[in-house]
């Protein structure tokens, strides 16, 4: 899923500075699951903004709204309708949601309340780890189900580099070496013979390097 975290409160406060009516929009999608922009986070952030503004003697009125998915135009109607009574929309969705809202908000300003960090998995409560860089050409079949582009700090397709020590990456003793993980998996699955295959340079045109991507499924249109 998409993993995000709330921006520093002073950043958020600066975005809505001078706005008297704020529409604070949460999302039931990924950001609810990662506890960054769900119902609970909307309530907490609304209280923080209200409190901060009261202290400055610049009170504001916050309207809270939860959307099924801000990244789906089908669900945006109510949000856009409510926006009309406000000065600004503060979105707690991921960057895809914020952008879709902005694209549909006419002259209304739209600001993000969270940083979209990565596509990742939950390790344990309160801990998430990155798993995918959306390269558009999945390599997992060749690397034991561990992504070299994401898990190796240098995205080496033929790793590890000389900086792998005791299973850790040279950048930090907290970071597992992605290629140690790959080798361990190749070993565990009896596929070590695959290690000596030279993986050819990636086709980054399928990644963001090829320009903003769009997916069209004729069967669903």
């Amino acid at each position: 899923m998409i993993v995000g975290e709330q921006k520093p409160i002073q950043d958020i406060m600066s975005y809505v500075d001078g706005c008297e009516r704020i529409l604070l929009a949460g999302c039931h999608g990924c950001v609810t699951v990662c506890c960054a922009g769900g119902q609970k986070e909307v309530e907490v952030l609304a209280s923080m903004i209200e409190l901060g503004r009261k202290k400055r003697h610049q009170p504001c009125k916050i309207t809270k709204i939860m959307q099924e998915r801000q990244c789906d135009v089908e669900f945006l109607e109510e949000l856009i309708a409510k926006a009309k009574d406000n000065d600004v929309i503060l979105s707690m969705a991921c960057a895809a949601g914020v952008q879709l809202v902005a694209e549909n908000a006419g002259s209304m300003k739209v600001f993000p309340a969270i940083n979209t960090n990565f596509i990742g998995a939950i390790h344990e409560k309160g801990v998430w780890g990155e798993r995918c860089q959306t390269c558009g050409d999945c390599k997992l079949a060749m690397t034991g189900g561990i992504c070299p582009i994401t898990r190796c700090s240098k995205s080496l397709l033929n790793g590890p580099c000389g900086g792998s020590k005791d299973g850790k990456c040279e950048i930090s003793p907290e970071t597992p070496c992605g290629w140690q993980l790959i080798i361990d998996r190749l070993d565990a699955t009896g596929c070590m013979d695959q290690y000596e295959r030279i993986l050819e340079p990636a086709d980054w045109s399928k990644s963001r390097d090829g320009g903003p991507r769009k997916l069209i499924r004729e069967d669903l249109k």
Binding site: K154, L156, N158, G159, E170, W204
Partner: peptide, 23 residues
């Protein structure tokens, strides 16, 4: 391959690694 940029004096830099050393 090259040392990761976190070691240097421009840790904010974007790294490339379009190719790896073997490629």
């Amino acid at each position: 391959s090259g040392d990761h940029q976190v070691f240097g004096d421009h840790p904010q830099a974007k790294n490339v690694f379009d190719l790896d050393s073997i490629q």
